[in-house]
Amino acid sequence: MKNTILALAFAFSGMGLYAQEGLRVGIHAGLPIDDFNDEISLMAGLDLGYMWALGEVVDLGISTGLIYGFKESFQSDVIVSGLTDVQFVPLAASVRIWPSNSFSFGIDGGYGLGLNEGNDGGIYYRPIIGYLLGPLTEINLSYTGIQLENRTWNTVSLGFLHTFEFNND
């Protein structure tokens, strides 16, 4: 394990400066899978965070936002009643690795606070793959998991993110 970490550190140290430091604001939308597939038709989210460049290719930061799952209205041509929307506020740490000047991968991890009635929230994780469309604009694909008491919130989403840099000149 130690040799693998050292090899990765040396590999990343030889690459150029690609890290994206600053305030990050974004949106994402996707579909539920597994446990909530029959109850939620679509999910949308807002992302807010701040990233600090730790080196040439690694960013570390904090993130929050809102995840909103819209209740399913129809199932097999039958109108369904009694379902509720599902909402979470994630509070997480973020890590991004930039192996090239346009591609990143990473994960957000922390806790997803449940907002709707009967939703206590749970452990939150969100692996993300991103591609820069411009110097500060990214499109990303992510998987979100929130481990609840008896079920797991799982979604796959596509997102758009913009970084606002602050210069102290």
Rank of each mutant, 00 (worst) to 15 (best):
M1R: 00
N3V: 06
N3G: 12
T4E: 15
L6P: 00
A7E: 15
A7S: 13
A7L: 09
A7W: 01
L8K: 01
L8W: 14
A9G: 12
F10M: 11
A11K: 11
A11Q: 14
A11Y: 15
F12S: 14
F12N: 10
F12W: 08
S13A: 14
G14R: 03
G14H: 10
G14P: 03
G16M: 09
G16Q: 14
A19P: 05
E21Q: 15
V25S: 08
V25M: 08
G26A: 02
I27T: 14
A29V: 05
A29K: 00
L31W: 04
P32Y: 03
D34F: 15
D34P: 00
D34L: 08
D35N: 06
N37Y: 11
D38G: 12
E39N: 13
E39W: 07
L42C: 10
M43S: 12
A44W: 03
L46I: 11
L48E: 01
L48F: 05
Y50R: 03
M51W: 07
W52K: 04
L54C: 14
L54R: 10
E56I: 00
E56S: 13
E56K: 09
V57W: 05
V57P: 08
V58C: 11
L60I: 13
G61C: 03
T64F: 02
L66P: 09
G69S: 07
F70P: 02
F70M: 05
K71R: 12
E72D: 11
S73F: 07
F74R: 01
Q75E: 14
V80Q: 13
G82I: 00
G82R: 01
T84K: 02
V86L: 06
Q87C: 05
F88W: 05
F88K: 01
V89P: 13
P90W: 05
P90I: 02
A93Y: 15
A93K: 09
R96W: 11
I97G: 08
I97N: 06
I97A: 09
I97V: 13
W98C: 00
N101C: 02
S102C: 02
S102E: 11
S104K: 05
G106N: 02
G106K: 00
I107V: 13
D108N: 13
D108R: 03
G109C: 07
G110I: 02
Y111C: 08
G114Y: 14
G118S: 04
N119V: 07
D120S: 14
D120F: 08
D120A: 12
G121D: 07
Y124R: 00
Y124H: 06
Y125Q: 11
R126W: 01
P127I: 04
I128N: 09
Y131I: 11
L132E: 08
L133Q: 01
G134H: 08
P135G: 13
P135M: 04
P135I: 04
L136R: 11
T137C: 04
E138M: 02
E138G: 01
I139C: 08
N140Y: 12
S142D: 15
Q147R: 06
Q147G: 09
L148D: 14
L148T: 10
E149F: 04
N150G: 14
R151Y: 15
T152V: 09
W153E: 02
W153I: 03
N154H: 15
G159C: 03
F160W: 08
L161I: 12
L161N: 15
H162K: 04
H162C: 02
T163F: 11
F164P: 06
F166E: 10
F166S: 07
N168G: 10
N168Q: 10
